[in-house]
């Protein structure tokens, strides 16, 4: 039984179709990577799952419950969480207040403010600092921590590595490995394919709003990924 099952959804930006008949399923406790070039629809997919982008057709099931007609905040209360692209911490709130925002309407569970500070020790001394003055890496850690504070059943992360130094990215993914080891289901959207392959059990590759490749990470070689990523085979055929 899948924790998240997406059945042929289509989403639009205005009149532009951003997702076409996308099917995706995510099993409990696994880590999924969604890869694809710029504009392939990766962020739209996550936004559609959260209800920030309207889905015009198809259905999304979370724990077998259809959620397409639920509002974003209702989906969050069911246990979905998104760490948005560009981090979007609340700049005028302190680090601790950002985490409290995440926890306020979340579920109860193992993640508390203190355990999040243990996961991201760099945040601990910045506890009272305004989130707006943090470095990019600290803000990303805070955004992930804020997502965890709700104790989600499904944690989705959009472009964690964007604009960050490789060493910072490694630290963040190290923390993420602990999260997924603790049993949380994780979906990462990544432009860095190697990073995505390294952390995930299965991969979906999007190309122009459609799933161009999917399968267990262990079965997929980089050549097939690059064909699905850039649409080389379809261009040749």
């Amino acid at each position: 039984m899948s924790l998240l099952r997406i059945e042929s959804i289509s989403s639009y930006y205005g009149d532009l179709r951003a997702l076409s008949d996308v099917d995706i399923s995510v099993e409990a406790s696994e880590t999924i990577a969604v890869i694809g070039a710029n504009g392939a629809g990766k962020s739209t997919l996550l936004r559609s799952i959260m209800g920030l982008t309207t889905v015009r057709s198809g259905e999304i099931y979370f724990d077998e419950q259809p959620i397409r007609r639920l509002r974003t905040y209702e989906r969050v209360r069911l246990g979905l969480a998104l760490v948005p692209e560009g981090r979007h911490v609340f700049p005028s709130l302190s680090v601790e207040e950002n985490l409290l925002m995440g926890a306020q309407r979340g579920r109860s569970g193992a993640w508390t403010i203190e355990s999040i500070f243990e996961l991201f020790p760099i945040l601990q001394p910045r506890r009272r600092a305004a989130a707006g003055v943090l470095s990019g890496g600290e803000q990303q850690a805070l955004a992930i921590g804020r997502g965890l504070a709700a104790n989600p059943r499904l944690l989705m992360l959009d472009e964690v590595s964007l604009g960050l130094a490789p060493i910072v990215v490694r630290e963040l993914y190290g923390a993420l490995a602990q999260v997924s080891a603790a049993g949380t289901t994780v979906v990462v959207v990544e432009q860095d394919v190697q990073q995505a392959v390294r952390v995930s059990h299965r991969v979906y590759c999007l190309l122009e709003g459609r799933v161009s490749l999917s399968g267990p990470t262990s079965d997929i070689d980089l050549q097939r990924i690059s064909a699905a990523y850039f649409g080389v085979s379809s261009a040749a055929g």
Binding site: E97, L100, M101, Q104
Partner: peptide
């Protein structure tokens, strides 16, 4: 907490919804 919500909503309306808040 309602005041914290006010400040957060002033900062970023969309992200407030991602916090499970209407």
């Amino acid at each position: 907490s309602i005041g914290r919500g006010f400040r957060a909503a002033a900062d970023d309306q969309e992200t407030v919804q991602l916090m499970g808040i209407d």
